[in-house]
Design a binder for these strands. Sequence first.
DNA 1: ACCCAGGCGGGCG
DNA 2: CGCCCGCATGGG
Length: 291
Amino acid sequence: MAYDEVFTNIIKVADFSLKHTFESAQPLTFYGHYNNASNTLTYANGQHILNVGFEGDVRRGRIVVASRYANAIDDVKKRFRLDDDIKNMYESVSTDAFMRNAIEKYHGMRVTLNDPWETTVCFIMSQFNNVKRIRRMVLNLVAAFGSEIKDDNDRVVGRSFPRSADLLKVTENDFKKIGAGFRAKYLVGAAQYCTYNLDLYKLNPNDYDGLKSELTEIFGVGDKVADCIALMGYGNMHAFPIDVWVKRTLEKFYFKGKKKTVGELHAFAEKRWGKYAGFAQQYLFYHGMNI
DNA sequence: ACCCAGGCGGGCG
DNA sequence: CGCCCGCATGGG
């Protein structure tokens, strides 16, 4: 099959925004390529390249998938969690004015389901950092250490995200060269640990406590990053990552500016948003950061 | 110049 | 356990 013989299909979808989903600092933000003018996203899954576009209204439109990857449709459905009962989720987390405003402003923003290892790397990169620089660091990582994706004419058309085993020979100094800074030593440790000591693909996505305890054994993964991996790498909506923005936003809009501990905020989120806490969190984070 | 960013590990009390 | 500190780097 020639490279230009791509498989295209259309998925009808309600309440979906490719733009907000991409831009809201999830793994796709860090290694995908989004074109704002055409509202299209290109990303790689392993050796496959997927082109995803969106047409129509946020409330009711269609996703156009173009790829030579036979399972591209299933990949997109899984990645964007299109089978979720989004109307019920919105109803559940629309608990107050802040959430309603966030949902109105960023309607259609989905919590994505990503590869666990890729999510781990992206959020190790995220610590004590800003979104723009995280993205540059991750793109540098893929460019430097990802394996080439070639067409039938042996032409390089992209690079895939490096697996943990692909990074075993990469040194701390190499990671510093791509801008990782003090996180370089964490990447070395994570690559080792996730190759030899922990199979990320055998963890139970539904076991929140189990995920947290296993993931925090990775050097450089603490409570917050583990919550991000549980949420965006395993789809565990119980996870409620509390970063500086979420903490600040909760304190300001839910506790009249009073300082709260992370433990208190976790308990608050669990009681208020329950099984959709992670979904609510993405709106708290993104709206809180941009308000 | 100064402050901050999707925090973490390590050391200390 | 909780608290506090240093940490690399670039953008506002």
